[in-house]
Each structure stands twice: as C-alpha cells, then as structure tokens.
C-alpha cells in the first residue's frame, strides 16, 4: 500500500529480513493475532479495522527522545498488523514524526497513509500536499481527505482528479464532534467519495442516526475518530471496575470495550485511536478481534456507560 521514497539497499535488506522473520511464525498463529479486516466498499480492498491517529500524540517537534518513542509505537503498530495512519497538516509536527518513524522502520509495505488537505485557499492546496508528502517521506498518499470540510467545494473536484490520475487511491471528507453533520450528509449524498471520517464513540452516537446508515447505503467507508474522546473517556473510566460482561467480549480493558463498541457497528471500516504508548497501541489492535458486540449487546454497553456518567 505504501509508496516508498528512499528505497536504499539497507532498507531492502531490512525488509527482507523482517519478511523472512514473519514467515517463521505459523500462519494460524499470525492470523490469531492480526486485527480483523474490513472492506472498503468502493474498491473491495480489505484493511485492518484499527488504525493509528496522530493528533497531539505525534506532535513532538524535533525532540529526539520522543521521536524515537513514537517510532517504537509505530513499530508495534505494524508488528501487530496495523496499517492506516491518519494525520493532517493541522497537527503540528505529527506528519514529520510519522515520516521519521516510517524511515526508521524501513517503510513498511502494509502502511495505508491517510492524510488531509487543510486550507481555505485553493491556491495553497498543491503546495500543502507536496509539503505533507515531504513530511511523510512518501511519494503518494493512499487517502486524501478534506479536513473538517474546509473549502470542500474547491478541494473535492481536484482530489477526485488526483484519484483519476492515479496520484491518490481514495478521496474522503472529515468532521469531528458532531460539527456540520447536515452538510456532511449532503456531501455524502451528492459527491463521489470513498471515505467519510467522523467522531463516533460510546457516548457520542449522533452519527448512528443518519450518517452511518447513509454510509452503508452509499457504499462509503467510515473512519471513526476520537474513540476515547481524546483520552477523557479512558481517564474517566480508568478507576472504574470493568463491567461483568467484559469477559463475554474478551475485553481486558476499558479501552478495548470502547473500541469493540465502535467496531460492533457494521458501517465502521476503521477506528483510529491515537496513543503515545507501545502497550496501548498493542491493546488497541487486539480489540479488533472476535467476539464483537451485536446490536443488543451494544445497547447494553452504552446504557452501562451512560449510567456511570
């Protein structure tokens, strides 16, 4: 999925070593520890259903210690079968941190790069995309999204043209925290988009009313952002005992319960929790395994958490 920029001898050899190491693990064991895959409706391509967000967590500037720590998070992410990394020019140095990690890890083949266009000035678009690619140390993005619908009328046709030219593979739009859902919905109905990214979590279920059913009808893949409401949910739940039904879901933490709730909705293609920690990234990927809650169980989960709140 990835488009490598610096393919030198060392990275090729490193990649071959990693690949051969991976083949030493029996396939049934690997399958067991891989996150569940979901299909992108517009292409039929299957991607892992847990990705990695980068807002705040990957904005570490040029701090060498923190750059290496984030690269370690990315390494664990790829080792455990992750693919989609989501970033934006709005996120400070996050794109460059991803680029640093990709370079350090030898540009993992499984990367699914999801970035955004975030400018109100259409003349700035191309230079912004070029700078983002530079930061990511990539030649192409898999997915480009119009961030928060900023100047979407200008950007969407151009992104569609880029897709037609083979410069990107998918086009999307994003929003968060329930903002501009009416407009979001009308774009989902009227424009040819592959991905819709929106906020969805156990306490923010607004998208269930119209956007998620619409995504299924229109064949649009959905990326769920802010699964933990930017750590407020996980922090608030941290000192609360796990509910008795956590075992039924094979969930070992609140984070996994929250992710399983999201993945239990059939319209969700990928959820993108952000983290600074290796143990958390592994825990998040491990949430994308059976069993997932059905509709009745999801109601039970939401009611339980709502009561706690």
């Amino acid at each position: 999925m990835t488009h490598r920029l610096n393919l030198n001898r060392r990275t090729v050899i490193k990649g071959m070593m990693l690949a051969s190491a991976a083949t030493l693990v029996p396939p049934w064991i690997r399958a067991e520890t891989r996150p569940m895959m979901r299909t992108i409706p517009s292409s039929g391509e299957r991607i892992p259903s847990v990705g990695l967000g980068t807002w705040i967590t990957f904005n570490v500037g040029q701090d060498p210690v923190l750059l290496d720590e984030r690269a370690a998070v990315m390494q664990a992410f790829f080792e455990d079968g992750g693919a989609m990394i989501d970033s934006s020019p709005m996120y400070g140095s996050s794109q460059a941190t991803v680029g640093y990690g990709l370079d350090k890890l030898g540009y993992p083949e499984s990367l699914f790069s999801a970035d955004k266009v975030w400018t109100g000035n259409p003349n700035r678009r191309q230079s912004q995309i070029a700078e983002s690619l530079d930061d990511w140390r990539q030649e192409h993005f898999d997915l480009l999204q119009v961030h928060n619908l900023v100047a979407w009328r200008d950007h969407l046709p151009r992104l569609q043209k880029m897709k037609a030219n083979g410069e990107i593979r998918y086009v999307g739009i994003t929003t968060s925290d329930g903002r501009r859902h009416d407009q979001f919905e009308s774009i989902m109905r009227s424009e040819r988009i592959d991905f819709a990214q929106l906020s969805y979590n156990i306490l923010n279920r607004e998208a269930e009313k119209r956007l998620l059913p619409l995504a299924r009808d229109e064949g649009i893949a959905v990326i769920a952002n802010r699964p933990f409401q930017q750590d407020r949910l996980t922090q608030w739940l941290a000192d609360k005992p796990l509910p008795p039904w956590a075992d039924e879901l094979k969930a070992t933490s609140w984070a996994q319960i929250l992710l399983k709730f999201i993945l239990g909705h059939p319209a969700i293609t990928c959820v993108i929790p952000a983290t600074t920690r290796v143990d958390h990234v592994r825990e998040n990927l491990a949430a994308a395994r059976e069993p997932l809650p059905d509709a009745a169980m999801r109601e039970r989960m939401a009611a339980f958490v709502r009561d706690l709140a």
Binding site: I56, V60, G61, V65, M90, G92
Partner: peptide, 11 residues
C-alpha cells in the same frame, strides 16, 4: 491545543 504538556516543557 495541538501538543501535550510533556512536549511543551521538554521544548
């Protein structure tokens, strides 16, 4: 806010 407290102080 785009960054964490840790990153801010480490600057």
């Amino acid at each position: 806010l785009l960054f964490s407290e840790q990153v801010y102080w480490r600057l």
